[in-house]
Write a protein that binds this DNA or RNA. Sequence first.
DNA 1: GGCTTCTCCGACCTCCGTAGTAGGATTAGG
DNA 2: CCTAATCCTACTACGGAGGTCGGAGAAGCC
Lengths: 161, 161
Amino acid sequence: MIFTTKAEYGVRLLVELGRQDGARPVSLKAIAEAEGLPLAYLERIVALLKKAGLVESTRGAHGGYRLTRPPSEIHMDEAVIALEGAVAPMSCFVDDSQDGRVLCSHVADDGHLCATKLLWTRVQGGVHRALAQTTLSELVAFSTSAQTPIEPQRPTLQGAA
Amino acid sequence: MIFTTKAEYGVRLLVELGRQDGARPVSLKAIAEAEGLPLAYLERIVALLKKAGLVESTRGAHGGYRLTRPPSEIHMDEAVIALEGAVAPMSCFVDDSQDGRVLCSHVADDGHLCATKLLWTRVQGGVHRALAQTTLSELVAFSTSAQTPIEPQRPTLQGAA
DNA sequence: GGCTTCTCCGACCTCCGTAGTAGGATTAGG
DNA sequence: CCTAATCCTACTACGGAGGTCGGAGAAGCC
């Protein structure tokens, strides 16, 4: 169960942008060198972020990329979904949660539902919650060696088991 | 971000075993036919569950597999870890959480930490929590068309955002 | 004892997505 | 007009997912 490097590189790219003040655009080349990532590949990744409206670009000399919003308003669920596509733990997992019914593609041969659907739904909820609770500004602060706590800011009931 | 079919098939296998009373072992062939899964592939998957001590086997005629514990005592984190290996959202993600330090393989070229580590740690926590809160007995109940709520039994503070 | 029915085990295969490259077209400063 | 940058499409290599095959042990049953 892993994300791909698209998510990894894309998030690092966003952090790199978030570290800047945003006055001037930052070129991909600078980011690629700072993070040690392949430039040509980053181009494809940043295109996903642009399509999602998270960054904007300026072409030509002294051009580059800039965040469209302050880092504190960028939640990572948006970013990761833009980079990875829908976050679903299983391929048969279409998001039909809005109508309350839980169905699967291989529905019910002999009268019983696909048991894993319940599990994957909960997992997806957990992932989505973790992503949504994390903002880009937190990652920026964390990366600049500040001691951001791993646990998100919201108090949780359960003792971590 | 998906699990593989190992997790899918393995969980369905466990549910199929949990649906039985556990008095007699169930053959893989019966499970494969009931779930419509390839028998030869299931063999490899159930071996993972056996190695993890979740099922036990009886060889020979009328043999098969059986749960080693009642379904209510089988939490899905154990099962999924047995099936998928460690649940880490990124390949560079080694679990060094016990010593509190958060480090990554590509540590810090120019003085700042790997920003994504914070994010993946939270995601992993969310996944792990969702898995640990779900027991096999819940999945069994769910699959037999009972209306198990998607949200786990624990009351949660946050409104689902 | 010899079937049959199972678990077990390792080697093998195929396909597809990930990760990355190559090469260019377009846009904008200086 | 040259250079620095984004943009865009096609191409490639590699590894793992997903599955198959053939056979070797184990245990019940006649």
